[in-house]
Structures are given as C-alpha cells and as structure tokens.
Amino acid sequence: MGLEIKLTVNGNTHTAELEPSTALVDFLRDTLGYKGVKLCCNTGECGACTIIMDGKPVNSCVVLGADAAGADLVTVEGIADGDELHPVQQAFIDTGAVQCGYCTPGFIVSLKALLDRTKSPTAEDVEEAISGNICRCTGYTKIFDAVDLAAKRMS
C-alpha cells in the first residue's frame, strides 16, 4: 500500500509516495534524493541522519516517513544561503573538523538548530546539542573549536 504525502524540505514542496513502514531517512535519501542526510545506525544513536523537523532536530532514522506529512523539514542541503556557507559550515572547514566528513551533516544540522535557539550557547548548551552526534574521526576537539568559531563569528 503506497501512501502519498506532501511535505516541505528546505523550502521546496514535495509530494511523493512511500511505503508506510519507511523510515524518514530512507524516504529523504532514496525517494527525494537528499543524500546529505546520512544513513548510519538506524537506531537513533549516532545523529548522522539529523534533520530539523518543524524547528526541532530529530534523528530521521527513527521517525516514520508518514509523520513528515505536512511537516517543514530542513536538511544539511538547506543550510547554506546559496553559495554562502552558514557560519557553522565555514567553521567546520576552517578548524579542520571535517575529516572523513560522514558525521558532518548531522553535526551541522544539530548546531544550526542550536544557534537558531541561542546566539551565545553555553558549554552545557553545546554539549546537550551534539551529545547525540557521534564523530569517530576527530575525537571532538576540532568540533568544539568549530562551534566556538561559529558562535564568535555570529555574535
């Protein structure tokens, strides 16, 4: 049974069919082509598939695709302003926080959501915002540096 849903992703309206058991991450990647949403743990533990759904960061691997009907989603593809990178994206490049880069989209989405909430996040805010994002390459030091740099540039 195919289910037709309508949703907004990065300001673009999509209408598409999906199988009702489909996870949102698979729908976004395989049906709508948002490959920046990274598939990894399938259990809501690593944060690679983080998107912003109606203003809140969520793990799209544990969200039912059907729940996105009528929702407003932001993926990593929707964060830059044209060719102008978001300060978090630029800071990830400038601080060496991108090694293999596979976790990067999830971190950037989580951090964009954080910086949308507050322009001057505390250490606790940062920790809360990205404890659900695993990076296996950097040991996190460069990611802390990137957050500091982005927050500084935005303030």
Binding site: K35, V76, I93, D94, G101
Partner: peptide
C-alpha cells in the same frame, strides 16, 4: 582547507 570540505559540509553525495 580540506580538499572536498565544501562538498562535505553542504551534504553532497560523495
């Protein structure tokens, strides 16, 4: 800057 950094931060399917 890392080669391929921009592609990675904007979510290109690399």
């Amino acid at each position: 800057p890392r080669k391929g950094g921009v592609e990675r931060v904007v979510g290109k399917g690399v």
